[in-house]
Design a protein around this nucleic acid. Structure first.
Length: 305
DNA sequence: CGGATTTCGTGGGGTATATG
DNA sequence: CATATACCCCACGAAATCCG
């Protein structure tokens, strides 16, 4: 292969931008999901093509040379433009697409929403794949970069610059075992407070705000078990007398599979709205529009039965 | 003779390892 | 410890070869 510019590999531009961003060949490799030597070789090619070392080791990191500094802005422009152009031209065909959609959601949504999303996607787009990630502090940045296509959840703290669409309202209920020794179909505040509670503490969830409100409404609640995930609470509740305060949607699903009872809360708490969020950059992207449309059709407005 | 299949060369990417 | 090099493997495209 010759050295003409007409044979320039676009991937090298990504490598350049990522090394610049991370200041490290190894970390850039991780980000691009390539091996470190691959980036090292890529960097070597860039060096010969541009006739400049581009990055030099200073202390712990790879610092850009003046020439690299001059290149980074136009290269970023190019990548951005390229990505934008390609996404605009792409027509999304569900039947043939092999796209991977990355959706950020809570573990609650994984239990109550994901199965329906998966079923619909499998039916309409057999080769499309779904990956989910947990909502974290990085999720907003991932939404902007395109690593995550969609967030589904309750995130009142999300900043401006993101599109959002309401899906449905939900509220908290009390979940406890069937045949609870002290509670039948009625739950008074006094009873609620006198029982031991299970609390799930999920960082970064908007639902945490509702739980904090509960703390002001029912400050004397005794939390005997605190766990970081909703994953096993069905088992725990059926084998204990603990009370859990959870979204109604989750309660319904768990009740179907376990000997559990759902009771209305003895104090009134605000309902919350499950939304989907996406970034302006992907507002027009046909593939993203399709997945958003699918989610909206499944969960829009109507509470899920 | 033409289309299909095999072979061969090239390049990208990986692992192991040297090197600074 | 992070980057660079050596070496190997695999995928892909083009040329060569094989049949109906």
């Amino acid at each position: 292969m010759g050295c003409g510019m007409n044979e320039f590999d676009l991937k090298l531009l990504q490598i350049f931008a990522e090394i610049y961003a991370t200041g490290s060949v190894s970390r850039a490799a991780e980000k691009l999901e390539l091996s470190q030597p691959t980036l090292s070789v890529g960097l070597a090619k860039l060096r010969t093509r541009f006739n400049d070392p581009l990055f030099v080791r200073i202390g712990g990191g790879m610092r850009p040379t003046p020439h690299a500094e001059a290149l980074i802005t136009p290269i970023r422009e190019l990548l951005r433009l390229l990505q934008h152009t390609l996404s605009l031209q792409a027509v999304f065909d569900p039947l043939s697409s092999q796209r991977v959609f990355n959706i950020a959601m809570t573990d609650i949504s994984q239990v109550v929403l994901l199965p329906q999303i998966l079923a619909k996607v499998r039916a309409e787009a057999p080769n499309v794949r779904i990956e989910t990630t947990h909502i974290s502090t990085e999720t907003a940045a991932q939404l902007e970069s395109g690593e995550v296509d969609l967030i589904i959840g309750y995130m009142p703290q999300i900043e401006a610059g993101f599109y959002q669409q309401k899906l449905f309202d939900d509220h908290v209920v009390c979940l406890l075992r069937d045949n609870h020794p002290r509670i039948d179909s009625r739950l008074t505040l006094k009873r609620y407070l006198s029982e031991a509670h299970l609390e799930v503490k999920v960082a970064g969830s908007g639902f945490a705000a509702v739980i904090r409100m509960l703390e002001t409404e029912a400050p004397l609640r005794r939390v005997h078990l605190r766990i970081p995930s909703y994953l096993g609470i069905g088992e725990i509740l059926t084998s204990s007398d603990l009370l859990a305060t959870v979204p109604r949607l989750l309660a319904d699903v768990l009740q179907r599979r376990n000997a559990l009872r759902v009771l209305p809360m003895p104090v009134s708490l605000p309902s919350f709205t499950i939304m989907q969020y996406w970034h302006a950059r992907f507002h027009q992207n046909p593939a993203c529009r399709w997945i958003r449309q699918s989610v909206a059709e499944l969960f829009g407005q109507q509470p899920v039965a």
